[in-house]
């Protein structure tokens, strides 16, 4: 399996990461190396195995429905790159 440049562009777009110029060839090579290795997963011994999502053999614990957080907006928004009137600002979103 080998990744084409178009596929790489699609993936980059999904991940919102730009891949430009000098970087693409090396990147494709690295990605292809990993995907080559992934061929090991075609091993037929895996066919009958139940996928394992998590190493912890436990079930989800449920939290009581109580409000435990108070307004910490000032603290939580201190690191916002752009804000006004308690809102995070982003370039205009066109719906």
């Amino acid at each position: 399996m080998s990744l084409t440049n178009d596929q790489l562009q699609d993936v980059a777009n999904l991940a919102r990461i730009s891949v430009e110029d000098g970087w693409t060839d090396g990147l494709r090579r690295d990605l292809n190396a990993i995907l080559d290795q992934a061929r090991l997963l075609d091993d037929p011994r895996l066919d009958a195995i139940e996928p394992m999502a998590h190493p912890l053999d436990q079930t989800q614990r449920l939290r009581a429905d109580t409000v435990s957080e108070t307004d910490q907006r000032v603290t939580m928004m201190a690191a916002a790159p752009a804000q006004e009137g308690g809102l995070f600002l982003v370039p205009k979103v066109i719906e």
């Binding site: 006004e84 809102l87 600002l89 982003v90 205009k92």
Partner: peptide, 11 residues
């Protein structure tokens, strides 16, 4: 989408 100097506010 009210105008914040041409930006969108997120709540």
């Amino acid at each position: 989408h009210e105008d914040f100097h041409g930006m969108t506010g997120i709540d």
